Amino acid sequence: MAGKFYIAVAVLTLIFILLYSLLPLYSKENPTFLGLPMFYWYQIILMPIGALVFFAVSYLIRE
């Protein structure tokens, strides 16, 4: 079961590294959300989503 956990965490980690490394796509001032440029709100939204996904994977894979 530990192998599945490591594979799931590795896949999720790679997805989030990829999402964060797409800097040219979200390094913009427009669109703004609550006065924040896209560069900031994109990262603010990804942080809690990443935490929830990693929590869900670790919770579901436990025996």
Rank of each mutant, 00 (worst) to 15 (best):
L34Y: 14
S21D: 07
F55Q: 04
A51V: 11
I45R: 03
I44F: 12
G35Q: 09
I15Y: 02
S58A: 10
S58L: 15
L52H: 07
I45N: 03
L36K: 08
S58C: 08
L60D: 11
I15D: 01
S21Y: 10
F33Q: 02
L12H: 08
E63L: 10
Y42S: 05
I61K: 05
V57M: 04
E29V: 04
Y26V: 05
G35S: 12
I44T: 06
L46S: 04
T32P: 02
M1L: 11
L34S: 12
S27N: 08
L25P: 02
M38Y: 08
F54A: 13
L14I: 06
L36F: 14
L36E: 03
M38S: 06
A2W: 10
A56N: 09
M1E: 12
M38V: 05
L36N: 03
L19S: 01
E29S: 00
K4H: 03
L60E: 14
Y40W: 15
L22Y: 00
S58N: 10
L19D: 03
P48A: 01
K28D: 06
A8N: 13
I17Y: 02
L36C: 08
Y6P: 00
P37L: 00
F55W: 07
I49M: 11
L60H: 15
I15W: 00
S27V: 00
L60M: 15
M1T: 09
I17L: 14
P37S: 01
I15V: 12
L19R: 01
Q43M: 07
I49W: 11
R62S: 06
Y59A: 14
Y40S: 01
E29A: 01
L23Y: 09
L52G: 12
L36D: 05
L36T: 03
L12V: 07
G50P: 00
A10E: 10
V9H: 12
F54H: 09
S27F: 00
M1D: 07
Q43K: 14
L12S: 05
E63N: 12
A2I: 13
F39V: 14
I17A: 13
S27R: 01
P48T: 04
R62A: 13
I17F: 11
A2M: 15
L18M: 10
V9L: 15
L36R: 04
F39H: 05
F54M: 13
G50N: 10
Y26N: 05
G35I: 05
A10S: 11
V53G: 00
G3V: 03
Y20E: 03
Y59T: 14
A10N: 07
V53M: 06
I15K: 07
P24T: 08
I45S: 10
M47Q: 04
M1W: 10
K4M: 09
S58M: 14
L46Q: 12
F55P: 01
P31R: 10
A51R: 06
I61N: 03
A56P: 04
L19F: 07
F33N: 11
L36H: 06
F5A: 02
V11W: 13
F39L: 15
N30Y: 12
L23H: 15
I45D: 03
T32C: 11
I7D: 05
Y6R: 09
N30W: 01
A56Q: 06
R62M: 02
